[in-house]
């Protein structure tokens, strides 16, 4: 491999990328989300999806769910880098546990008339999407499911008059009686 002139060792890395969902339990305090996001941008990691909300108000705990991609070595780095942050209690790799459920909620606005409108409603029914707003020329559907299902639904709505989409990002939880 030819090296360009550099004071650094430049290398190609060929390990395949994997997608992992991480659940991060943090102290809910000012700046905690900025710390987590700053870590990802500062170290060049990817964020595919990010969901955050306080989950236990009395203990000031928030749960951040991050979907990220990287080589296995990078994924391990991300987990370690998150885990060493002062306000982080716990990092769980939901993908690695292989016992997790992932859900996302999307609101999908579709505008159309006639056959398109009927078809949109029919598909929504097949996907178990609910109508949460309607006018004579539009619907807003609420759909819940894993990312693939929502992507598929949105793709189907596109030719039927898709106007806009609002998605929550992925939330994940482990199966079975145990907590994380």
């Amino acid at each position: 491999m030819n090296q360009p002139a550099s004071a650094y060792f430049i290398e190609d890395r060929h390990d395949p990328n994997e997608t992992h969902t991480l659940a991060v339990l943090v102290q809910n305090e000012p700046g905690v989300l900025a710390r987590v996001i700053g870590l990802f941008s500062g170290r060049g990691y990817n964020i595919e999806s990010l969901t955050v909300s306080e989950t236990e108000a009395q203990k000031h705990l928030s749960r951040i769910t991050i979907v990220t991609t990287g080589t296995p070595m990078v994924i391990a780095q991300i987990k370690n880098q998150l885990d060493r942050m002062i306000p982080v209690y716990q990092v769980v790799d939901m993908t690695q546990t292989k016992r997790s459920i992932e859900r996302e909620l999307a609101m999908v606005k579709v505008r159309g008339q006639g056959e398109h409108r009927v078809e949109a409603l029919r598909l929504a029914d097949a996907f178990r999407a609910r109508v949460i707003d309607a006018t004579t020329e539009s619907f807003v559907f609420e759909i819940t499911g894993n990312t693939d299902k929502i992507n598929q639904f949105i793709d189907l709505m596109r030719p039927l008059g898709l106007v806009e989409v609002s998605r929550t990002g992925v939330a994940a939880i482990g199966r079975g009686p145990e907590g994380m």
């Binding site: 650094y8 060792f9 290398e11 391990a76 780095q77 370690n80 880098q81 060493r84």
Partner: peptide, 27 residues
């Protein structure tokens, strides 16, 4: 990187033990 030189040719035949207080330094 000032220590290892080319990573894929770094000490190729050795078993490596690494003691560190920071888990993110490992691997």
């Amino acid at each position: 990187d000032r220590i290892t030189g080319r990573v894929d040719a770094f000490s190729p035949g050795s078993k490596k033990i690494h003691i560190d207080i920071d888990p993110s330094s490992i691997n």
